Amino acid sequence: MKKIIPVLFTLLFLVGCLPKPKISISGVEDGKIYVTEQTISIDQNLAGDDYTLKLNGESITNKHTVTDNGHYDLEVTAKKWWQEEEKSIQFEIDDVPPKKPELKANIRSSYFKSVTFGLEREKDVSYEIKLDGKRHDIDSPITKEGDHYLNIVATKDNQLVSQRKFRFEIDNRTYSRNEVDSFEWLSLNLIHKESNLPRIQKWTEDVDVVVHGEPTSQDWKSLNTYISTLNETLPFYLNLHKKDDRTYNAGTIIMHFVPNYRFDELGFQQPLRQGDGEIVGFAYPNKVTYNGVFKEATIGIDTTIPQHTRNTTIYHELIHALGLYKHFDNNRSSILYPYNDTGVTKLAKIDKKMIELLYRPDITPGMYKPQVEATLKPRIID
């Protein structure tokens, strides 16, 4: 018995001196979500040589790289002699951003009186919603008239984000049934000869009005006045230029001041005599996209007529070139009256209303009559 005691004492002493295994993992942390691949490493000096790494139940080696998206359970065991330590780490790899926020209401450029957008929410995604820079409840109606800016930022648990932002307006303008009928008559035209149904055609970007020929100083003065007036209304700018002074914007209206007997040189194919009158001006689009966006138009102004009638003709043809290619046959106060003996050089109320309707943001190029009707129907007051 005396011989055994020193041996047991020695073993107990050695056990007390042996370091316990320690698990130190780098590359992943418990509860973390990663958007890139991660390499799992264990400190072998601390763990010793007798350790195991299991990822979702499968054995892996030190410095194992995880690349695929998914949820992962890492189980680690380290042993030294009869001492053992265990550690469990759960992590996730997810490099997929949240979906772009989807609204329940259709996104349009203009709404009548109010709009409530609503939001299709994605699981595990938070949303920051701001209207005109202030926090907004997406399920609350927006009724304030005017222009607005909505910005929605979606953030996923992996901190990846997606965004939807757009501008719109609450516009409470209304129109009479007669005004809408007149507008449809004036603005719906065949885009190409092979077209079957008339559609809306309009300019969508700034337009250069390039003058050719021999305009008088009064012609220039009238043009400047008319274009300044139109630029107060249109959602783009008409920019007046001489022939050799171009900036080449997206669209071009080429205005020729020539005697009317030269109109055929400009592509005008109709007889100059029309009933008891004579053609002293014309306008037609010569470049239109398949969906009704004007790119180029030509105007001809007869230089043989008196200045006072030419002033009316210039404005008349310029309004045609905006996309209103028909006439108000019985309204002598309108600039779209087909004869220039009225001396009209200002837009009548009906002219302004027609331009307003054509260049509403919700009246888009390429629309057919049923689409125009559906868009304007809530605004018709009689």
Rank of each mutant, 00 (worst) to 15 (best):
H192G: 05
A250G: 05
R121N: 09
D382E: 12
L46A: 14
P259V: 05
L230D: 05
M354K: 00
Q269Y: 10
D181E: 14
I319V: 14
D341F: 14
V161R: 09
T116G: 07
V207K: 01
V153P: 02
T65H: 12
V209R: 01
T52W: 06
K2R: 15
I227V: 15
L74F: 05
G57W: 12
D43N: 15
K287F: 06
L188R: 00
L11D: 05
I25V: 11
R199F: 00
K130Y: 09
F183S: 00
V161A: 08
Q38G: 07
A348F: 05
V125Y: 08
Y149H: 15
M367N: 01
L238D: 02
L12S: 11
A283G: 10
G300C: 04
R310K: 14
L53S: 04
E145K: 12
P285F: 01
N196A: 10
E58R: 13
S24P: 04
Y325A: 03
T229L: 13
I254W: 04
E278H: 09
T174M: 09
Q83E: 12
V293Q: 01
V207I: 13
Q218S: 14
E29L: 05
N178H: 12
A154R: 03
I89A: 04
V207D: 01
W81K: 10
I254G: 02
N291C: 02
N311M: 11
K100R: 15
E317V: 03
D302Y: 04
L376Q: 00
N62V: 04
V258P: 00
P97K: 09
N45M: 05
I129Q: 02
E128T: 15
V96M: 10
T36A: 13
K113L: 03
Y72K: 08
T298E: 04
K287N: 14
D137G: 04
E122N: 09
L12M: 13
L103K: 05
Y34D: 08
D43P: 06
L336W: 01
P235W: 02
Y248T: 09
R246N: 11
G27N: 10
I191V: 10
N286S: 08
E296H: 04
P141A: 06
D132W: 11
I42R: 02
K326F: 01
H308V: 07
W81M: 12
E169D: 09
I42F: 04
L53W: 05
I254N: 14
K80Y: 08
D68Y: 08
F268L: 12
K369M: 01
G118H: 07
I380Q: 03
Y175T: 03
T342M: 04
V211T: 07
P378A: 11
N189P: 01
I299P: 03
Q38W: 08
E184V: 00
L186C: 04
K353F: 00
N249I: 08
G292P: 03
N56Q: 09
